[in-house]
Design a protein around this nucleic acid. Structure first.
Length: 198
DNA sequence: TCATTAATCGAAG
DNA sequence: CTTCGATTAATGA
């Protein structure tokens, strides 16, 4: 979701900056704001009983997060953590709902947005249900690439560390590294100086 | 250059 | 596939 910043401000939105590793909200916190990224990147994660991190999503500029919770009376099911120096616009929940009411067009794009999230979640779950690590990575890469309006072949640079990719698909780094090498051999991806091109 | 973080590798489970 | 141990590369102060 990407809403005009002036509009967000007119409904009480304020800009806040966060340092890398700052926590924006924690699992179990009350949902009180709509967040939209002006600059930087954040991740949504949880930890399993062994303390291993699972990343649910990584969001960048002009993307919002936690917004589906604004329509529910639930607490956050995940943590939101900053990956780098970032700037976010924060709008109080009730103001946000007010804004939606006064701008029906927003409601429509909100639907489109949430629909798309559900759609990609399903695609991700489909590939994640595969036992094969290469299929899981392929699913992740397809998802990432779908956000990229690239045209050329194998020119989409994956801006994620291998560790992050591993935590996104539920595998270990080493496994990801080895699987990526196989995929490179098969010509499914290209690797230039450790950078992955898909 | 020192320290920290990420990427790799090989061997074993 | 994961875990462990160790090395090497890249990055930033």
């Amino acid at each position: 979701m990407n809403i005009d910043q002036q509009l967000l401000r007119s409904f009480g939105g304020d800009t806040r900056s966060y340092k890398a590793k700052d926590t924006i909200f924690k699992e179990g916190d009350h949902v009180q704001y709509y967040f939209q990224i002006v600059k930087g990147k954040i991740k949504l994660n949880t930890y399993d009983e062994e303390g291993r991190e699972f990343i649910h999503n990584i969001l960048g500029i002009n993307q919002s997060f936690g917004d589906s919770l604004l329509f529910l009376e639930k607490r956050y099911p995940v943590n939101a953590v900053c990956l780098e120096l970032s700037e976010l616009i924060r709008v109080p929940k009730n103001n946000f709902l007010d804004m939606i009411r006064k701008h029906p067009d927003l409601s429509l794009s909100m639907n489109a947005c949430l629909s798309q999230r559900i759609y990609f979640k399903v695609l991700m779950m489909k590939s994640m249900s595969s036992q094969n690590p290469e299929s899981r990575l392929k699913g992740l890469l397809d998802y990432l690439k779908s956000y990229h309006d690239g045209d050329c072949i194998q020119c989409f640079p994956v801006e994620l560390t291998r560790q992050q990719m591993a935590n996104l698909v539920g595998l270990r780094v080493e496994t990801v590294i080895r699987a990526l090498k196989k995929m490179e051999k098969k010509g499914e991806i290209r690797i230039k100086n450790r950078k992955i091109l898909y």
